[in-house]
C-alpha cells in the first residue's frame, strides 16, 4: 500500500500537467505547442531509432566523463587544498576568480585550443562542474571536528588512514552537496557545449530541429533532457542515502532530542 501511495505522489503532478496540456490544446491546433498525442508519436519516432546511438549515448558519455572527472579532481584537489593551510591561502583568491568566469564563454576559446572534439566538450563540462565539488570539499575538510581529530591523532591515525577514515567521511555531507550542484551544471554545459559547434549530440539535435522548424521534434528533445535530469537526480538521491546514512540518522536523533 505504501509504495502505491508513493507512486501516486511521484506521478500525480506530471499526469495532471499532461491532462491540462491536453485540454488546452484540444481542438485548437497550435504550430508551436503540439498536442500530447502528436508529441508522443514524434518522441517515439525521433528517439527510439538510431538517434540513441548517434546522439543520446555520445552526449551521455561526455556528460558522464565530465562529471566523473570533475568529482574526482574536485575531491582530490579539495582534500589537498583543505589540508594545507598555506596552499589554501595561496589559491583561494584565484579559485574565486576562475569560479566566477561563466564556463560557456570558454567554449570558443577551447574550440580554438582543442578543436571541435569530444575532449573539448568534456573540458567545458569539467570547467563548470568542478567548482561546487572543489569548494565544498575544501570547506568540509576544514570543518573536521577538533575533538575527533585529536582522538584520531592520539590513536596514531595519520597520513592516508587519516584521509580515509576521518577527513573524507567527515567532509562527505558537504561533498555530496557539491556533487548535487555539479550534476545539474553538468547537464546544462553538456547541451551548451554541443550548441556552439558539433555534429552530434542532444544539444546539436535540438538546435537543428529549432532551425528547421521541426517543432514537435524540438519539444521531444527538450523532454529527453528533462528525463535525463530526473534520472540523474534519482541516482544521486539513492547514492546519497546510502553514503550519508549515518549523517541523516545522526541529524534525526539530534532533532528528536
Amino acid at each position: 500500500m505504501t509504495w502505491l501511495k508513493s507512486l501516486a505522489y511521484l506521478v500525480g503532478l506530471p499526469l495532471l500537467l499532461i491532462l491540462i496540456w491536453w485540454a488546452a490544446t484540444l481542438g485548437r491546433p497550435n504550430f508551436f505547442f503540439p498536442a500530447p498525442g502528436i508529441l508522443m508519436d514524434t518522441f517515439g519516432e525521433v528517439w527510439f531509432g538510431e538517434r540513441i546511438l548517434s546522439d543520446v549515448l555520445p552526449s551521455l558519455g561526455r556528460l558522464l566523463a565530465g562529471v566523473a572527472a570533475a568529482i574526482g579532481i574536485g575531491i582530490a584537489a579539495g582534500l589537498l587544498i583543505g589540508s594545507v593551510k598555506w596552499l589554501r591561502a595561496l589559491l583561494e583568491p584565484t579559485l574565486e576568480f576562475f569560479r566566477a568566469v561563466p564556463p560557456p564563454v570558454l567554449v570558443p576559446v577551447l574550440m580554438l585550443l582543442m578543436g571541435i572534439t569530444d575532449s573539448m566538450k568534456v573540458v567545458v563540462i569539467i570547467s563548470g562542474c568542478i567548482w561546487p565539488v572543489l569548494l565544498n570539499t575544501i570547506e568540509g575538510v576544514r570543518a573536521v571536528d577538533g575533538v575527533l581529530s585529536d582522538s584520531a591523532r592520539t590513536y596514531g591515525v595519520a597520513g592516508w588512514a587519516r584521509v580515509r577514515y576521518l577527513v573524507l567521511p567527515s567532509a562527505s555531507p558537504q561533498i555530496m552537496a557539491g556533487i548535487r550542484q555539479c550534476l545539474s551544471i553538468g547537464l546544462i554545459l553538456m547541451v551548451i557545449s554541443e550548441m556552439f559547434a558539433s555534429s552530434s549530440g542532444l544539444g546539436f539535435t535540438i538546435v537543428q530541429f529549432q532551425r528547421s522548424f521541426a517543432i514537435p521534434e524540438m519539444w521531444s528533445g527538450i523532454i529527453v533532457l528533462g528525463l535525463i535530469g530526473v534520472a540523474m537526480s534519482f541516482i544521486f538521491q539513492w547514492t546519497e542515502r546510502r553514503v550519508l546514512r549515518w549523517y541523516h540518522g545522526q541529524k534525526e536523533v539530534e532533532n528528536a532530542g
Binding site: 575533538v147 592520539t154 590513536y155 596514531g156 591515525v157 588512514a161 577514515y165 567527515s170 549523517y247
Partner: peptide, 30 residues
C-alpha cells in the same frame, strides 16, 4: 603509541560514520 585518551565530549570523539565495533577496531587496524 602506548597511550590512549578518553575525552569528555563522547559525542565528538567517536566516528559517527562507523559502527561501535569498527570504532573500537580502528586504532588496532591502523
Amino acid at each position: 603509541k602506548k597511550m590512549a585518551v578518553v575525552f569528555q565530549e563522547y559525542g565528538r570523539s567517536l566516528f559517527p560514520w562507523m559502527r561501535v565495533r569498527q570504532n573500537v577496531e580502528l586504532p588496532l587496524k591502523n
